[in-house]
Design a protein around this nucleic acid. Structure first.
Lengths: 248, 248
DNA sequence: CTAAAATTCTAACGAACGTTCGAAAAATCG
DNA sequence: CGATTTTTCGAACGTTCGTTAGAATTTTAG
């Protein structure tokens, strides 16, 4: 009888480390690897069975569906990142330092848990049911934390270049934060531990770009208006050819 | 008899706009939508058949496999972006302006051809055979163009904060360029035309962050060393609990 | 040691997948 | 028009998919 679906006993606070728990988290590690390597849709339960050495049916003793498996991975990864962030943020009250802590925390996790982070970023909008809604809520919470940090910085330094809207020049908070997430979440596509710097240096580099990027006085920015509009580049270009085909 | 696989006549330079070509590119538009909405692996040929109104077998008259379909989309999107970029870059010799043109070109395409851009970014490493190798080459070419623009800027302004390596503070060229790609390629996950600014403003915001980020004199950067190491946050944290389970 | 509970397995289910065959229909052209 | 080519389609192919029933085995506890 499948424990994950039917048995429903005392339900202790689940803070123990039972045999079942250990096996499940072992499976989650294998699943993270398979999902990272082949994508959620591209990976099959048979791939996971082969890699983990557990029979196909044996897997289903620990979770009830492939979807739940992805949910477990993403939920665990996300809450771990947020928990660590909260602990680390307690160490400073300086707005700039706190943003650097935020970036370091995120980059550090991306570097040390590359596959989990890839599954979190790349399979972002796969889950559609209640799992998806819950993960979306966690994501929004994480986003709001970052917005708060940026607003603290802007307030403290009176950065008029960071504003809710970017109408008159300067950078909107939303674009800034999303840009930062872009720099961090894109890591999984290019980071190679053997070639690239460690989390400390990488986090400093990204923080530098972001922080100094926000501190710009927007007045000095050049416009591409003149240069571009003088060419035909800005106008609607004629549709390009499709690739070659084999026909007469 | 399937024209795409067997017939092999005169093979004119394929610069015409035949009935076949028009139908194929119509199918590619539908396929772009399906792949963007459900992911390449998650989308089925039956989904495409339903959306396009063409029978399952009818589709295969125009291409020989699902893989080739993805290749067509990605190859066409990528070369279009590069072609437009080359035209637009001809309008200026100023290093900063040229980088702004690069960003605008990329952002503009992301905003106006959202779905195609999502397929290009999100299904980046799906193709493994010769298709994949060819696309990787195009990608490298695009990357090298951007590196060239950044190097021109650093040379022209004697930015000692932008260097091949980032050992002593400052930002390595690789991290800078990858960070820029991150900001731009992450767009597809959050950009909403109804809420967010148009390509012009968005491109200026991203360019501002990037350019002013690079121009920082790295000396003023704070370190999170002290703050973070004084807490237990930097150390290996005890493993967090997995999510709840239903057992006794 | 024995009985109960927890864990694992083999074998299979029906559904969905990418792709193809061969004939029907539509378009082209003398 | 009739002949030929181009385009479309219903029906099926073999394979793989996620999942499950039920028996066999291992672990746990008295």
């Amino acid at each position: 009888m499948s424990a994950a679906s039917t048995t429903r006993a005392p339900e202790r606070p689940s803070l123990q480390d039972t045999r079942f728990d250990r096996r499940l988290s072992e499976i989650l590690d294998y699943a993270t690897q398979v999902f990272a390597d082949k994508g959620y849709e591209g990976a099959s339960m048979r791939d996971l069975s082969r890699l983990s050495g557990i029979s196909l049916a044996g897997l289903y003793y620990y979770f009830e569906s492939k979807e739940k498996l992805l949910y477990f991975i993403q939920q665990h990864t996300f809450t771990t990142i947020i928990d660590r962030l909260r602990e680390r943020l307690a160490a400073s009250n300086d707005p700039e330092t706190r943003i650097r802590i935020f970036v370091h925390n995120h980059v550090d996790y991306s570097v040390t848990k590359q596959k989990a982070m890839k599954v979190l970023s790349h399979e972002d909008d796969v889950l559609k049911n209640s799992y998806g809604t819950e993960l979306a809520a966690i994501k929004r919470e994480y986003y709001r934390i970052c917005v708060g940090l940026v607003e603290d910085l802007a307030r403290g330094e009176r950065l008029k270049s960071v504003a809710p809207s970017a109408a008159a020049g300067g950078v909107s908070t939303r674009t800034a934060v999303m840009g930062l997430f872009g720099m961090m979440n894109w890591l999984y596509t290019w980071y190679k531990p053997s070639v690239d710097p460690g989390a400390e240096i990488l986090a400093r580099e990204i923080s530098d770009i972001f922080l100094h990027g926000l501190r710009s006085n927007a007045g000095t920015a050049k416009s591409i208006r003149g240069a571009v509009e003088s060419s035909r580049a800005m106008k609607k270009l004629p549709p390009k050819r499709l690739s070659a085909r084999k026909r007469q």
